[in-house]
Amino acid sequence: MNILNIQQVSKRYGDHQALSEVSLSVGSNQIFGLLGPNGAGKTTLIRIINQIINPDSGLIEINGEKLQPKHIELIGYLPEERGLYKKMKVLDQLLYLAQLKGLKSSDAKAKIKYWLERFDIVSWKDKKVEDLSKGMAQKIQFVATVMHDPKLIILDEPFSGFDPVNANIIKEEIFRLRDQGATIIFSTHRMESVEQLCDSIAMINKSKVILNGTVKEIRNSYKANLYEVKHKGNLSTLSSDFSIVEAGDGLSEELLTSLIKVPEGTSPNTLLQALLPLVEVHAFEEKIPSVNDIFIAKVQEVAP
């Protein structure tokens, strides 16, 4: 079952259409990437899911129920622009935020203890946030997001501001939380981390969803029958049935890499057969476009 269903959600700020008829669904127990350039409407959508703002129209369901105040407890939210009370002690702060999420004081204490131990930061509990380094504060912030065991965790640009070591710790935690049954929505405009992290993605550009599906499906649907061949020898006499998109350049005794397009409906074996008499083949692989390639292509396609 889908943990989150968004149907035809629109939101307008004055003259600015932030979201127009956005529909998408997020399946349970996966990492879902919400992609899009800055200003596309990601944060607006996230704020609507968090009930910080209301949509002008459309329907949102969590676990099949219409979104309502009690769902706040199911969601953990790490905003893009984030911070903590500077003058408050770490423990007091986490306790306060956990109670606001509906946890009882005693439960909250146990959860906080668990997370502080997990990150090996128990010794910080009586420090004021203003005395912590930025990376330390980010860890506390992450604990604040997940300590109430949310079923749906929404992370807006989670890795901005993290050093690589901490970013990796957080990444591992995201996988672990997914494996324990949580669903993570992960919003970013940086594509590098998407392929290794996300099971499914949705792309938003200019207030509209332009792409939605599993990473595998999307990449496969955008493949252009391109094959990368590593070879020794010259390709210039290759049958004109195949177009050489990128010819390897260099001396004939060197290992060259070429990109060749196979016409629709033709098997790659045909290409291979055509290649074998001409060159010495060292590697042969289908070239599937990266999410980044698709993203850029899609955004440019929409642009006037």
Binding site: N50, P79, R82, Y85, L100, A144
Partner: peptide, 18 residues
């Protein structure tokens, strides 16, 4: 102003109404 500039406010209003 403190809550706004320290940006904790977005976390708080995801739990309670402004």
């Amino acid at each position: 102003i403190e809550e706004k500039t320290s940006r904790i406010v977005e976390i708080i209003v995801s739990s309670v109404k402004p």
